[in-house]
């Protein structure tokens, strides 16, 4: 089942002479349960693509469908709610809420929805990521790797349709990167999540099921 699809996605910054075509007509399809890596050099448009996929920024033209829903037909508030329920993010700089502890960070999207977290499920995630002893800690009290694991837990906790990871190991050393990426893959399989990951590192990209290459705003390989 196609869980993510884009049609002729374009994002243009500026106008006239100084127009920058960050995305220049991207067509993409992702199936449920796949682990996709999007690879490209700096300035290739991969971050922009991810932001589009997650509904964080609006395209100039084109459409994105998540779980059958065209997300840009929604208004801002509806889009936010959709994102809360259907999309999980993992960022390069973790982006945890500094004033909340680890547990609160993990269940935040669920609570924002007004729902009770599925305690068993959340426990499983926490165990899988090895965070049991750190639940009361504040983010500034954790190492980079630990913070990233919290971010992954947060992304998983709300059982989203897809998880979008933007250079998840960008700020981590090589050993920690291996660990974190391994966890990402394992949890993705265990909890049957679709993962779309951005990276510029070919080695890390090999862990994915499929590699999509992007250059100058266009897909140059692996689109299917």
């Amino acid at each position: 089942m196609t869980i993510l699809e884009t049609k002729d996605l374009k994002k243009i910054y500026g106008s006239g002479e100084t127009a920058v075509h960050a995305l220049d007509g991207v067509d993409l399809q992702v199936q449920n349960g796949e682990f996709i890596a999007i690879v490209g050099t700096s300035g290739s448009g991969k971050s922009t693509l991810l932001h589009m996929l997650g509904g964080l920024d609006r395209p100039t033209t084109g459409s994105v469908s998540v779980d059958g829903k065209e997300i840009f037909s929604l208004k801002d508030e509806e889009l936010t709610i959709f994102r809360r329920r259907k999309i999980g993010f993992v960022f390069q700089n973790y982006n945890l809420v500094p004033v909340l502890n680890v547990y609160e960070n993990i269940v935040l999207p669920i609570q924002l929805d007004g729902k009770e977290p599925d305690a068993e499920y959340v426990d499983k995630i926490i165990k899988t990521l090895g965070l049991e002893t750190k639940l009361q800690n504040l983010p500034n009290n954790l190492s980079g790797g630990q913070q990233q694991r919290v971010a992954i837990a947060r992304a998983l906790a709300s059982k989203p349709a897809i998880i979008l990871a933007d250079e998840p190991t960008g700020n981590l050393d090589s050993k920690t990167s291996q660990d974190v990426l391994g966890l990402l893959k394992v949890t993705g399989e265990k909890f049957s999540q679709t993962i779309v990951m951005i990276t510029h590192n070919e080695e890390l990209a090999q862990l994915a099921d499929r590699i999509i290459r992007i250059e100058d705003g266009k897909i140059v390989g692996g689109a299917k």
Partner: peptide, 15 residues
């Protein structure tokens, strides 16, 4: 930036 982050996670404008 903090509010942007909250928005990313899914906090609505009203919230």
């Amino acid at each position: 930036r903090y509010y942007g982050l909250l928005k990313t996670i899914g906090t609505t404008g009203k919230q």
